[in-house]
Amino acid sequence: MKPTSSSTVSRNSRLKLGAIIVTLAVLIILPLCIDSDYIKHLLIMTCIGAILGMTFSMLYSSGLITLGAAAFYAVGAYTSTMLVTSLGLSFWAALPVTIVISAVLSLGFGAIFVRNAGVAFVIITLIFVQVIVIAAGQIEFLGGWGGIMNIPRPGSLGPVEFVSKRECYYLILMILLLIIIIYNALYSSRIGRAWRAIKLSPNLAGTLGINAYRYRLLAFVIGSTTAALAGSFYAHYFQNITPGAFAGWLSIYVQLYAVLGGLEFYILGPAIGSLIMTFVPEYLRVVKEIEPIITGLLLLVIILFFPGGILGTIKNPPDFSLQRFKSELSKIKIWKMQGGKR
């Protein structure tokens, strides 16, 4: 690495600070300029998607791939809804209870799941989503397949009301910022470094005295609890929940956010990916029949040719010169002669 003089460092950090302030200002002013409820809804869903994507990234930073982001999202949504509709608590009173319940649940299930690393963990989390969905659908107490309707909006917290779409947007924005601050602190702490070490090599990390199982379990619990928080907000914002809303491929979309934005960017990547994946398919609705084909092709192109995702490509722009193309071709020939060594 080149030694950087102190002036460039301070200029870089000043640039960063400026970018953060501008983005924040845009995010705060945006809903004031937009009248359409539809766009506001998409913005709120972008924030929720970004939170879910960040939970995926957190587990990925410790080398685990989860397809189960939707599971605790659903747990949070159902727990909060049941607390509010059955026990008559307010959203704000139910929130800490929801967080505690989902943290305990994720600790219990995580203790079983995290023991299986690699492929088995991917499949278990995928199946766990199905378990939650079927359980919610089959148990009458939880509303069955029809779901629960007329969940109240978050309501007032002291002097501030959270009822309209615009107020809900500010609420989720605050939650998002809080999560970003906490996650950022975690990634730059000892815990975050331990996660990255485990991802690089669990065995090597073990020789350095890092208990891979415990650190991964910690990542699982933090990620799941965050997802539950997002779920509880979603239930009260959307005002009705059905098991189908959490089924199947929602979790796959969550990973898409992280891959699309850039896997190496644990916080900004999912945010950018979520923004694109929420708005682009909505505008492709015009060509509804071929929308999944376009999304699938887009995904393949990104994975095959821009492995760093959008942010990674901006940071290290690929070289499209003829020279590079020729050298790539010769590399392929050599690689085929070697027998496709990976």
């Binding site: 791939i65 084909i293 699938g296």
Partner: peptide, 23 residues
């Protein structure tokens, strides 16, 4: 890393899945 390899190939197969399904 193994997780990167697994994730990217799984995501590529998801892309393939979407195309085959809708096709």
């Amino acid at each position: 890393t193994f997780s990167y390899r697994l994730l990217l190939s799984a995501m590529a197969s998801v892309g393939l899945m979407m195309i085959l399904q809708q096709g």
